[in-house]
Design a protein around this nucleic acid. Structure first.
Lengths: 339, 339
DNA sequence: TTGAAAGCGCTAACAA
DNA sequence: TTGTTAGCGCTTTCAA
């Protein structure tokens, strides 16, 4: 720990530049009233003295503090990280700081953290959920702006940003159909999740647009695990329907499917093409073969939530649900065209 | 966005409690000089008015601000999350806030962020690396305390906290030997990483302590991928040495090994036991069979880094490298005793 | 045990 | 275009 740096204040800067405190303040804050020469002198002085403005003093007489709160429901969740990253990258580091909190799925903890954030006088809050299931609005509790990322608010007056499951499923199905697949099965996830429903529904709709029906058992729900993927694949293999493709609602399911197909001597992608969801990179790109998947573009979700909050802080609060288009990440599990 | 809450200030509280500003301040800050009755009255007033102290005003005349900076090298890295979580959970939410930054492995960006954090008058900084390879000390640049998590500082004057790879390897080898394994092979990771070297070395040492030598090729280095695990396993199968266990330097390698053993009809754990490293839960616990692994206890690393920083802030800066003991997470891949 | 008053470092009227 | 002055909300001497 180096010695305590004696803080250089604006007063010192003003003094060395030979101007008043007020003028120095104006010069450094880009106010137009100061002459170019004065500004140069002040900036020079600030630079040589290594002046760093004290944000606390600044915040004390400004309407805004340049700090926003990130209220995450579950920091350990692997989906929140890209969102954080998107937020962090969007807000200018110099102008805005992020205070991070983790409610650990505990509503009581969440209340506490909101109080803390408000005590820190954050300009706004980005509420990051742990799935894309809707969550109660915080509008009543908050005297500041807020946007919701991943888990949308139940109130449409709030601005929510999440990935578009329907569109993701459509991308997957279109890709399979373009590859010549006509008999597509679907294995979706835990039916208590929106994502499981929407990805299945999106697939059914997209298939119909091509004049196709999804093959295989009507009840394609399971959970989000490899085990379910393996079980589902075996069921399909033992079922009466032929299939040349499987769309899975996440990468783990897809991994299970790919592994079982391999065990049974079905070649992927030659005999059966497989598409996953989530683009859990380290996971889906190292299987045999690597799995084509849908990336939710969660960084973009974070980016939009940050921009939305910035707008809200600027006095123009957005509202409604914005669905971010996912993208297809093609890999070997769907390579080549069938026939 | 609800209406702007007119902030309740200490002055209002003092007024309703019928005391002076100064007394109210003392009462709320636990100063002993105030009488119990007065304190009760002030607290009562504060509660009913919903008084929340303004941290900026507070920080303006205190030595500390109750804010610390988290300087992460790479937020997208999956190892930093548990560390963040450990830090977040350790610092009292009410008393300390965390400002999050992400340098994205860019030293220039890192400099900027340090400047920003110092501008925010953080009481200290926790530097979180993206691997356990040492990183340059920041002591020269920082007028405040700092601790290093995961990636230790190159300076022993700094306090660094990381997981103990040697101990992790020892746990794995001991566990295998206790299970009756005598011919243990090792597949480690990318030789440019400390972790790869230390885990291999730890395994060799631990084996010798049992009077055993590691079997298989001397050059056990590869990278951190499933592909390397598969390749390494095939090499072992085709080699001349018999082996009844494989210790892998991460879960991906272990997964590759398990999959190939399965392909070749070797039963895990009956014929060959497998241990991974990192406890990447969602990954290692869903393979066939689920993989025994070493958990680095990164939350604990975060916790200690936070406590160390708290000590530094309190004027007692710790120093040196603290290695956190990992723990074994037993799963099916080593179940039962051989023999 | 309480209160009056002086700042913390800065911004924002207002005056010059 | 520049400077003077009054706070922002709080803590902290120092007196009472």
């Amino acid at each position: 720990m180096a010695g305590k740096a004696k803080a250089v204040t604006l007063a010192t800067v003003a003094q060395t530049a030979g101007v008043s405190l007020a003028t120095a303040s104006k010069a450094l804050n880009g106010k137009t009233v100061v002459s170019a020469a004065t500004r140069r002198r002040v900036e020079e002085a600030a630079r040589t003295l290594g002046f760093v403005p004290n944000h606390f003093a600044k915040a004390l007489n400004s309407a805004t503090t340049g700090v926003i709160g990130l209220l995450t429901a579950d920091l350990a969740n692997r989906f929140v990280l890209p969102i954080l990253s998107g937020v962090e990258n969007t807000l200018g580091v110099e102008s805005t700081s992020i205070i991070l909190t983790d409610a650990r799925r505990d509503p009581i903890r969440e209340r506490h953290q909101i109080a803390t954030l408000l005590g820190r006088k954050v300009d706004g809050i980005i509420v990051v959920g742990h799935s894309d299931d809707a969550r109660p609005s915080l509008a009543e509790l908050l005297p500041v702006g807020a946007t919701y990322a991943f888990a949308p608010s139940t109130s449409t007056a709030d601005a929510s940003y999440l990935s578009d499951n329907y569109e993701g499923a459509r991308l997957a199905i279109d890709h399979l159909v373009e590859g010549g697949r006509r008999s597509i099965a679907v294995l979706t996830g835990d039916p208590t999740y929106n994502a499981a429903k929407e990805r299945l529904e999106g697939a059914v709709r997209a298939a119909r647009r091509h004049g196709l029906e999804i093959v295989g058992p009507a009840n394609a729900y399971g959970d989000w695990s490899e085990e379910w993927g393996r079980y589902g694949a075996e069921s399909l293999l033992q079922g009466r329907d032929e299939f040349d493709a499987v769309f899975c609602a996440n990468d783990q399911i897809a991994r299970g499917v790919v592994d079982v197909l391999r065990d049974y001597g079905r070649e992927v992608p030659h005999d059966v093409a497989v598409v996953g969801f989530d683009n859990w990179e380290l996971y889906s790109s190292h299987s045999r073969p690597p799995i084509t998947t849908i990336d939710m573009n969660l960084e973009e979700v974070g980016r939009l939530a940050a921009l939305g909050l910035a707008a809200a802080i600027a006095g123009e609060p957005p509202s409604g649900i914005t669905r971010v288009a996912p993208r297809l990440v093609p890999r070997a599990s769907t390579a080549g065209s069938k026939q």
